[in-house]
Write a protein that binds this DNA or RNA. Sequence first.
DNA 1: GCCCCTTCTCAGAGGTGCCTCAGAGCTGGG
DNA 2: CCCAGCTCTGAGGCACCTCTGAGAAGGGGC
Lengths: 248, 248
Amino acid sequence: MNTTRSGRPALTRPDGTALRVLVVDDDPDLSEVLTGALRYEGWQVRAAADGAAALAAARELRPDAVVLDVMLPDMDGFTVLRRLHETQPEVCVLFLTARDAVEDRIAGLTAGGDDYVTKPFSLEEVVARLRGLLRRAGMARRPEPEEDPGLVVGDLVMDEDAREVTRAGELIELSPTEFELLRFLMRNPRRVLSKAQILDRVWSYDFGGRAHVVELYISYLRKKIDAGREPMIHTVRGAGYVLKPVTG
Amino acid sequence: MNTTRSGRPALTRPDGTALRVLVVDDDPDLSEVLTGALRYEGWQVRAAADGAAALAAARELRPDAVVLDVMLPDMDGFTVLRRLHETQPEVCVLFLTARDAVEDRIAGLTAGGDDYVTKPFSLEEVVARLRGLLRRAGMARRPEPEEDPGLVVGDLVMDEDAREVTRAGELIELSPTEFELLRFLMRNPRRVLSKAQILDRVWSYDFGGRAHVVELYISYLRKKIDAGREPMIHTVRGAGYVLKPVTG
DNA sequence: GCCCCTTCTCAGAGGTGCCTCAGAGCTGGG
DNA sequence: CCCAGCTCTGAGGCACCTCTGAGAAGGGGC
């Protein structure tokens, strides 16, 4: 079975091979980070730095999805999208855009089921949105062909579409950051995650703050998830945190 | 089963295969948006930029419906329609036209069961009309052969043809925009919809306004639908809005 | 047992998102 | 021509969310 670098089972194409993703951004640092994060998901990733290179790479790679910066040195992201769709109408696109930029134009052109995130974003958000896109487009299937249960760890259940979390059937209200943090934990159960790792994945890449916020948000999550119950979030002193089912 | 990108079951042809739609418009941006939105419905879509290309594509695709701009660079939309009907009399046509244009001529020519929308339109409206056309023409069937319940979420019921909405049997009067917004919510129950998504789908593609109007209309809807009752419309701070039946 | 370092918790400042109200512009009907 | 309904803008205000700082609590090494 195709697996991620982290050992989790990967989201794959219907035929079981790795999903193919093309990353298009002219900032080499950002491109590097994105490429790494997506490879970590077990996907086959390729990068391009401008529109022309993107179209060329797309012809060769025939990607399932494209992560596409709106501002490219040679051409508009929308032009890239249109040209892409001419030859590969099935491809999904996730736009990257500055917050106060041409957000309305983006809005208009993503109506077809594509999506966008505004910079600065967290890697967890990009990955989540990309997974959502691919899942809805029917391009991806879960490794187990049976019913997709969503994210489940013990009696803790997360419905990403409804943005709902329940423990033992009881609804738990979470703030956006709490939700992202829990999603990251639930996608890596029984695995110790360092504060640095959490900071990298859940907080925006330009976040300058210190690891103290992670401790703080872990404590928030504990209050909401572990309050009066057998704890699922455990501290591993000097290493990080781990989420485990109660009888694990 | 054939499903939409959003995960909803798709409206299909009687034999269960995907409905085939041809989009004919010379504005590449608009064509792109329409194509995406219809694909999102789970349909097989193809685009053409002028009348000649449309006729050629129609011969090949043999579409169930055509979305047809009245003003094309090479020939009149009506001419396209006439030629289309020569070879494919069964095809449905949804005209796209400017508001103050030849509206009466359209009206005359759509008496045969075709329909039209005036620019600028919302995608929700185009999709709804196309679905209506196909359903009435007997070219589509609901995925479940049993009774078509229409749009129902909890005790909230929408009759799209009569443009009537009831909650707990009580009739609720809605303005056009309120109706469109509620329809979009009801077609995506238990799913958090961002303000940008809502803006894309419910407002016209050329609407430049801010997402603030969405908040405003949500508040209107709440007053009419949730007033004095268990609320069904919920705000998910930082994410969007979600419509849920009262008991879960 | 003592000390040091890590982690946890609390309280509060500042920012932001969202809701609501009031009103202007527009349109269509009487 | 006036009135009614609809749509959108702008401003005000509240509530929540996020992060900072400081002190308390706890674990491990010596």
